[in-house]
């Protein structure tokens, strides 16, 4: 009963929030809606029994990625509405709706297969975090290390890309500085 209520609540809220993300003209609204939608998606993970994945979603997505976005938004002008030239909006919605229809029909079809078997089945009695740790550090150790190296490369790339010429003005609007200088000269 609680699962049903939680599922429908989370689905409706998530879809609504992500629609706001996609449709909003304001970057700040879009980012806030995206962050809250990600919190609700971690709710899905908790319903599904993937506790560790839910916590990782909260820490990495809502914590790190959204913080990164909000720091990056300090470089851009976030208060101004975005003007986008939307050519063929009808075509976009037609294509999106059609792909949604096809995907829903594909996934709503019943799965007739007995050949699907668990590759790494969950253990009875062991918690989710324990299970994940056992499989991650035995069967998926090499991808794990490769992902670690990839994250290191991404960190260095981010620092080098964003950190160059940090001391220069980003907005290129030096008129305010000039104004202050002339005021000082006048005095």
């Amino acid at each position: 009963m609680y699962e049903i209520v939680a599922f429908y609540l989370f689905s409706v809220l998530t879809i609504g929030l992500f629609l706001v993300t996609v449709m909003s003209k304001n970057v700040l609204y879009a980012m806030t809606a995206l962050a809250s939608g990600m919190v609700l998606i971690s709710g899905f993970f908790f319903i599904l029994g993937a506790d560790f994945l839910g916590v990782v979603q909260l820490i990495v997505y809502v914590g790190a990625v959204m913080a990164l976005y909000s720091f990056a938004m300090m470089f851009f002008d976030a208060t101004r509405d975005i003007k986008e030239k939307n050519t063929n909006a009808g075509l976009v919605f037609l294509l999106g709706g059609l792909s949604a229809l096809v995907l829903v029909l594909m996934f709503a079809a019943p799965i007739h297969s007995d050949a699907i078997q668990a590759l790494y089945p969950m253990h009875e009695g062991a918690g989710n975090a324990q299970d994940v740790g056992i499989v991650l550090f035995t069967k998926y150790l090499v991808p794990f290390e490769v992902a670690a190296v990839m994250l290191l490369v991404a960190m260095i790339a981010g620092i080098i890309l964003a950190g160059k010429k940090m001391d220069q003005s980003l907005t290129e609007d030096t008129s305010a500085d000039d104004e202050i200088m002339t005021l000082k000269d006048a005095k």
């Binding site: 699907i116 668990a118 590759l119 790494y120 969950m122 991650l136 069967k139």
Partner: peptide, 8 residues
């Protein structure tokens, strides 16, 4: 499917 691969 009681499988951990998806979570990985």
């Amino acid at each position: 499917y009681n499988d951990l691969t998806g979570q990985m």
